[in-house]
Amino acid sequence: MRNYQSILILKPDLDEAQVEQSIEKITSIISKFGGAILKLDNWGKKRLAYRVKKNKFGYYLNIYHTCEQGNVPALEREYQLYDLIIKYLVIRLEERDIERVMSKAAEAAEKAESEAKESVTAEKTEGAAKEGVVAEKTE
């Protein structure tokens, strides 16, 4: 089992439901070759740096996954045959690379959490301040 990173570009003329469907399909393809998805990022629709199969835009998917060692060529073949994918890139990751990715993701999640908490506390303090003002006025 090794860790890999797949970046896939899907056709631009899909709607959200179709993108979800294709994500499911891609998940099943990866699990078919003895892999599991570790992390999946949907970057949404982005402008391409050059035209790919006459498309100027594309949906980017960034997937960190595992895969059985000999199965990567077969996985790439499946990507080629799936008609919604216009371009793909599969990269092998070392152990330290995947650790870095995971720690980064954990950090980002923590940050988002703390920010959410902060906004809640800020609201509370604001509310408290308002109450204080009201209290002063009544005095």
């Binding site: 570009i9 740096a49 050059y50 790919v52 594309g58 371009k87 890139l89 990269i91």
Partner: peptide, 14 residues
């Protein structure tokens, strides 16, 4: 080079 191959950066100008 990797970014070029996945259309994030151009190989040449448009």
């Amino acid at each position: 080079k990797r970014a070029r191959s996945i259309a994030l950066l151009p190989f040449s100008e448009e």
